[in-house]
Amino acid sequence: MGEGYAPVLDVRNLKTYYFLRQGVVKAVDDVSFQVNENETVGLAGESGCGKSTVAFSLLRLVPPPGKIVGGDIILSGEAITRKSESEMRRDIRWKKIAMCFQDSMNAFNPVLTIGEQIAETFVVHENMDKHEALQKSEELLNIVGIDPARVRNYPHEFSGGMRQRAMIAMALALNPKLVILDEPTTALDVIVQAQVLDWIKDVQQKMRLATILISHDLSIIAKICDRVAIFYAGKVVEYTDVKSLFREPIHPYSQGLMRSFPSTRGPKKRLESVSGFPPDLIDPPSGCRFHPRCELGSGDKCRREDPGMVEVRPGHYVACHLTD
């Protein structure tokens, strides 16, 4: 839980749109959340709902034709949105915010050794000479439980789980304040998944990192996140701590998500899913974006007006007209 200090990351009303020939995709549309020190915040939702775009926006790496069109991103008091590209490259990227990508196999360059790829962060940002940088890389690998001699190996010579850990080691190289993990375990099999997740939680707590975990898999979020923001169609629909969400999901979408997860305890139930399909972000439904799929029936207000985030319980925010 947050410890009452100013948050490490404060995202306020972020809007990131993609300007395509067919129209404007409102991938991130007025999103706000915070991450404190020694806290893992999960960004959950279906594919294509804007979670990764948020991550890219934080690093200001949104690929064209995408652009941050509004809002603020404040990292330990610094306004990221206002920085120039060279400032981002020099001061922020990897030094203050680091990111681990989905599918570590493709995130690493196949023709360079793992050691080389970790070392270059030191060479570029801390002006170390190559030899020293490689040594530090060896130490890093050691810390994450990989034989340091493997600095000389290529990405394809690592197993999936090890490669993931190597990627996280690389992310931690410069002691960033914020680490973003985008679907860190999707490419792994279930047993390795659990191991890696435990390990991630361990590292986060030891180093008191502020962490963002992006996933479509609520069970992963349940396992290691402290707070969670549920995304739908580019907006946050529910934002609270994990225990509260699982005990009492308030937004109809969150409730749908909970029901679609099989439980190994309790009476046998049919698996349900949320009916319908995620909306087209170029032309989203009017008013509340979830109303076409909402089980509670969409009232007139739901169709007309976009609900804002309301603190329905202490620390528990929901964007829905029907809970007011």
Binding site: R90, A98, A107, V124
Partner: peptide
Amino acid sequence: SQDYIVTARAKGLPQRM
């Protein structure tokens, strides 16, 4: 256009590199 280039950019590496 590969993913590892995104990683490289996220690492703050200079364009030439």
